[in-house]
Design a binder for these strands. Structure first.
Lengths: 208, 208
DNA sequence: TTGTTATGACCGACTGGTCAGTCATAACGT
DNA sequence: ACGTTATGACTGACCAGTCGGTCATAACAA
């Protein structure tokens, strides 16, 4: 009898240990960053000995990359959702896309992946390339899709935003970063930000 | 005869050494982050011995904070410029503010301060508080100022952006980060982004 | 002007501690 | 019994921070 999933392979217990280590590692990396995280701390949090980590991962670098990758997978699946062809109003589709991002990333612990990425990315080019290919490209394509659809439908202007979807997403990123850095100094209401964000990109500042 | 500048006090040579160390430190911290930067590397880059650094700074932490502070001062002065009362059209004032930011921060090496801040901020609460009080608060106040002025003038809608200036700035931040992380994978035209950014926040997506 | 002494900026080898990665041994399962 | 999995003490490299020593310059004396 052959296992239908080739790469994961091994037993449940083994995968379980692996997940515990990955999640412990992720938590430590979130808190301390790559360089300042100690393998001992990860081991303790995962409830294993340090040597055990090396039964599953080659090095601290590998562990880091795998931990971050594993945290991104759920986000990736979300993005697939975006990629279906929009139906109905383009505005509604755009609102849905951005709201999902606020709810599932910006408004949750997952936003910490963003910060970790920004902080450590340049030291892990493979991870950057992975993220760019698997997440950013798809996300931006989905975005362009909706914008294009809106233009064809006569709902949206044909603006430069189609070539620069960054412009559409920017405010959400600032929200995530603010929450992690300045929320104790000046709290930020994520729902309020989301509404202001949507209103701004849809209608702009200028009086009609 | 008394020196007219009390705080700097000491000799030129001393200040010169200090500046050399600060700028070497900044460069190393930019490249490596706080934890991975070695004092030896800073010393070598500054052309001094490691011990010399400790004649000017108490610790690696202190050096880091001072280096970042020293890099922020020019930005601070720029912000002062924003804070003068706007005259003429609010749109022109807003365009000017944002363009200055693109030209002087996003489009230069100074954008690396942003990344360093995001990466290391949480480990340096004093620095975060300083940045929030001296830079962000003023910047956001200046922004609100212009928006308010535009509304009073009948040029702008009374939108939620007044309470969330983040929304106005977001795209610029994404531009800076993209440049530092993905520019080799997918180059970003800063001028194009700026124009798309301005067009977006002023006019929005929706067909009028 | 010239020789002598004082100053303190600067140096870099050294110390003490930390931590990624190893490996001999133990525990467990079958 | 035997193979597999886990352990944690250990090693060696690395690095922040120290401190006794050096030397260029300044201050002073003759």
């Amino acid at each position: 009898m052959n296992n239908p999933t080739p790469p994961p392979g091994g037993k449940d217990a083994k995968n379980e240990r692996m997940r515990e280590i990955l999640s412990a590692a992720l938590e430590e990396f979130f808190q301390e960053g790559f360089a300042a995280t100690r393998l001992d701390a990860i081991a303790e949090r995962a409830g294993v000995a340090k040597g055990t980590i090396y039964l599953y991962f080659d090095s601290k670098e590998t562990l880091f990359e795998e931990a971050v990758r594993s945290a991104i997978l759920p986000v990736l699946q979300r993005i697939e959702t975006f990629s279906v062809d929009p139906q109905g109003s383009a505005e509604a589709a755009l609102r849905a896309m951005i709201s999902i991002f606020y709810r599932d990333v910006i408004g949750t612990d997952r936003r910490r992946i963003l910060r970790l990425f920004i902080a450590e990315g340049p030291r892990f080019p493979r991870l950057l390339a992975f993220y760019h290919a698997e997440v950013l490209s798809r996300g931006m394509a989905a975005m362009r899709n909706v914008l294009q659809y809106g233009v064809e439908r006569g709902e949206f202007r044909a603006s430069a935003a189609i070539n620069y979807p960054h412009v559409i997403f920017g405010p959400a990123l600032i929200g995530a970063l603010w929450k992690m850095m300045f929320d104790n100094l000046e709290p930020l209401d994520i729902d309020g930000l989301r509404d202001a964000h949507l209103d701004s990109i849809l209608h702009g500042l200028v009086q009609k």
